[in-house]
Amino acid sequence: MTAIAISLIDVTKTYLDRTVVDRFSFAVKKGECFGLLGPNGAGKSTIARMAVGMTPPDAGKITVLGAPVPAQARLARASIGVVPQFDDLDQAFTVRENLLVFGRYFNMSTRQIEAVIPSLLEFARLESKADARVAGLSGGMKRRLMLARALINDPQLLILDEPTTGLDPHARHLIWERLRSLLARGKTILLTTHFMEEAERLCDRLCVLEEGQKIAEGRPQGLIDEQIGCQVIEINGGNPQELRALIKTCAQRIEVSGETLFCYSSAPEQVRVQLRERTDLRLLQRPPNLEDVFLRLTGREMKD
């Protein structure tokens, strides 16, 4: 058995005349959490769809769990669990029935499915909702049910398309905690997200995407150290051009995005000294994060 769960080599996908994914390559090792990080429209979902054989690439080679995709995608899907971005739970059914019906799509017998349902409900913290209609569940519960549903075939690999988009912070943290428990059990995860925090918390390695192209790849902290490597002061208020002139001597780099000026400096206290007279400004000093990496590489913020 190879140690690679997913491999994409020079994969290209074009819709009409728009290239959504452009000669994209990456490899996900077994047991790791790999993130595809990028703004909406960067091609993350298309890559996730191609990896399960839902969309054929125009060029390039995809191998998932040893099977060529899309030709043998069905073989690979037997050991994959997918959580799509949009709620596609069966509204006609209860929580338990959703799991039962889904298990049959993996050729499981009713008895086999009923044997795993209790542990899935426990995993999703939905024991008390087993016989509740899906329509009445909260957003967080629905997402946890989709996660439980993706685990019904005991997959080695999970593909999660924006698993916490649209959830409140509490629900999001619960999903993160559940995903970490899956990683601890040795599952491999491919995750798409536009949340920096999510990528930093969960991913062992990640790719940063923009307009279908890979603009950086590595460990989250490694990328941050390599691309930024100093403190960040966010400055709000005032005229960005004027401020830039004021602090440029004590900053490695300055980026302006919207109304915010990002000052990257190994000597943040000197920046503060320069600006001490300016009581009209709001200053926030923080360690660098992936958002800064994205801003550095693309010249714009990832926030939608």
Partner: peptide
């Protein structure tokens, strides 16, 4: 509307 088929396509079904 319900995207049920898409969910099924992520399984062993074609």
């Amino acid at each position: 509307d319900q995207r049920s088929w898409e969910a099924i396509l992520y399984t062993k079904m074609t």
